[in-house]
Amino acid sequence: MSGPDRTLATLGRRRAEVVETAKSGAYHLITVLDRGGPEPQPGQFYMLAVADLPGTGAGFGPAAGLGRDSQWTGRPYLPRAFSVAEAVVGEDGVRLSFVFAPVGPGTERLARLGVGGPALGLHGPLGVGFSSPRRLNPDAAGAILVAGGIGIAPIAIWRKRLAATNTAVRTLLGFRDAAHCGGLELFGKCANLVLVSEDGHLGRRGFVTEPLEEMLAGDGAAGAAVYACGPPAMLEAVRVICAERAVGVELALETPMGCGFGACFGCAVPLADGGYLRLCVDGPVVRGDRIETALVAGSGHRSRR
């Protein structure tokens, strides 16, 4: 199933130096210089080797110096999956930006990284990215992008790509409250941007699915192609809204992932016709009509402390 939406990954883990870190509202942005990898497709992701960062010892086993960091509890052990939010190709490599919130032992380590400090281990780009509006809907007149919370990451890079190809894009960004909001810089001076927040601190008050329903009612669903990323409940609402109106939709999902390249079979998402897909190799971008639900048990951001 390899196609234009999948850029093949460089084999094995490599180091990427940190070239910029920033806070943006409640979120953190980190940009690394990937000298060894290709340009990713919007929607693809990377596994970030947070366990190898300082404070975790030099690995595992008797020779690894466990216990160097009194805060270390044996986690993180696995790498963490992050959608790329921006990719800028330069002469010295690809600058990859990721958005995260420090909610657990992996993201807390990411938050401690800085320019001039240790490089970040990563592998990727992984998974399949978004497909063009015309592939999603042959009659597409443009694209509607819907992001919830930290789901802005793949939506930001996809919006930029679509805008560069002169596709008409309308972007809806929804946030819960000020403590779960940020990353707006990634959208720059974006035209046709609708901001929504559940507490009303930003833009209109409500759910991001409300303006989506209005848009689909307004211009008729026939010319729409919808792309969404966000928390499971939001994605499920978007999936149902689009299914009811027979609108083509691609969802960038998230589940717990062990490896990112199809090895561990951990990231199972139930298919509409039975069985499961592996989100890391068959996703993370999936068509709404392929899956039974976006409410996958165990997915979503949860703290384990």
């Binding site: 044996g74 986690r75 052990y77 561990c264 079979f265 951990g266 990231c267 199972a268 039975g274």
Partner: peptide
């Protein structure tokens, strides 16, 4: 076999618990 329903993974201290179910 389709394998087990999710969640299938749990990160443990220095390891991983899985219940994949032999898909």
């Amino acid at each position: 076999r389709h394998g087990n329903p999710p969640p299938r993974l749990w990160e443990a201290s220095g390891g991983l618990v899985n219940s994949i179910g032999l898909p």
